[in-house]
Measured scan of single mutants.
Amino acid sequence: LQAFIKTLTGKTFTVEMEPSDTIENLKAKIQDKEGIPPDQQRLIFAGKQLEDGRTLSDYNIQKESTLHLVL
């Protein structure tokens, strides 16, 4: 599935991932794409901060969901 990552500066980019991917995997993909170390990334979806060990499906993240990236 493709999801949108929106930063506080208003920049939006897309990442490809599977519902079974962990938040940790997602942070690694963001690092590959944007060069931001995972330990500096905080991802917010539906008002909740996402925990590394959980999966996208745990948070009911669907295709074309928008996640907010806070540094």
Score class of each variant (00 low, 15 high):
L1G: 06
L1M: 10
L1D: 04
L1C: 05
Q2K: 14
Q2A: 08
A3C: 15
A3P: 08
A3H: 05
A3Y: 15
A3M: 15
A3I: 15
F4H: 13
F4T: 14
F4K: 13
I5C: 05
I5V: 08
I5G: 01
I5T: 01
T7C: 10
T7G: 06
T7W: 06
T7L: 14
L8M: 14
L8S: 15
L8T: 14
T9Q: 13
T9F: 12
G10E: 03
G10D: 04
G10F: 03
K11N: 08
K11G: 07
K11I: 09
K11L: 09
T12Y: 09
T12A: 07
F13Y: 05
F13H: 02
F13D: 00
F13R: 00
F13W: 05
T14D: 04
T14F: 10
T14N: 05
T14I: 13
T14R: 07
V15P: 00
V15H: 01
V15N: 00
E16M: 12
E16V: 12
E16T: 12
M17P: 01
E18N: 13
E18D: 13
E18R: 13
E18I: 10
P19C: 06
P19M: 13
S20L: 09
S20T: 12
S20G: 12
D21W: 11
D21K: 03
D21C: 04
T22W: 04
T22H: 03
I23L: 05
I23M: 03
I23P: 01
I23E: 01
I23F: 02
I23H: 01
E24Q: 13
E24F: 14
E24R: 14
N25F: 12
N25W: 09
L26D: 00
L26G: 00
K27H: 01
K27R: 05
K27D: 00
A28P: 00
A28H: 12
K29T: 04
K29E: 03
I30R: 00
I30Y: 00
I30G: 00
D32A: 14
K33I: 15
K33C: 05
K33Y: 08
K33N: 05
I36Q: 02
I36W: 14
P37N: 06
P37L: 06
P37I: 04
P38R: 14
P38V: 15
P38M: 15
Q41D: 01
R42I: 15
R42P: 00
R42M: 13
R42G: 05
L43A: 00
L43F: 04
L43P: 02
I44A: 04
I44D: 04
I44Y: 15
F45Q: 04
F45M: 10
F45K: 04
F45R: 02
G47R: 03
K48W: 06
K48F: 09
K48Q: 14
K48L: 12
K48D: 06
Q49P: 11
Q49K: 08
Q49A: 10
Q49E: 15
Q49C: 11
Q49Y: 13
L50E: 01
E51T: 05
E51M: 10
D52Q: 05
D52K: 04
D52C: 05
D52G: 07
G53E: 09
R54P: 03
R54C: 08
R54I: 05
R54M: 12
R54N: 10
T55A: 08
T55K: 12
T55Q: 08
T55L: 11
T55I: 08
L56R: 00
S57P: 03
D58G: 03
D58M: 04
D58Y: 14
D58R: 01
Y59I: 07
N60W: 06
I61N: 04
I61E: 05
I61G: 04
Q62P: 12
K63T: 15
K63C: 06
K63Q: 14
K63R: 12
E64H: 13
E64N: 15
E64S: 13
S65T: 11
S65C: 05
S65D: 14
S65P: 08
S65Q: 08
S65G: 08
T66I: 15
T66P: 07
L67M: 10
L67K: 01
L67P: 04
H68Y: 15
H68C: 11
H68F: 13
L69P: 01
L69W: 00
L69H: 00
L69M: 07
V70R: 08
V70T: 09
V70F: 14
L71F: 09
L71A: 07
L71R: 06
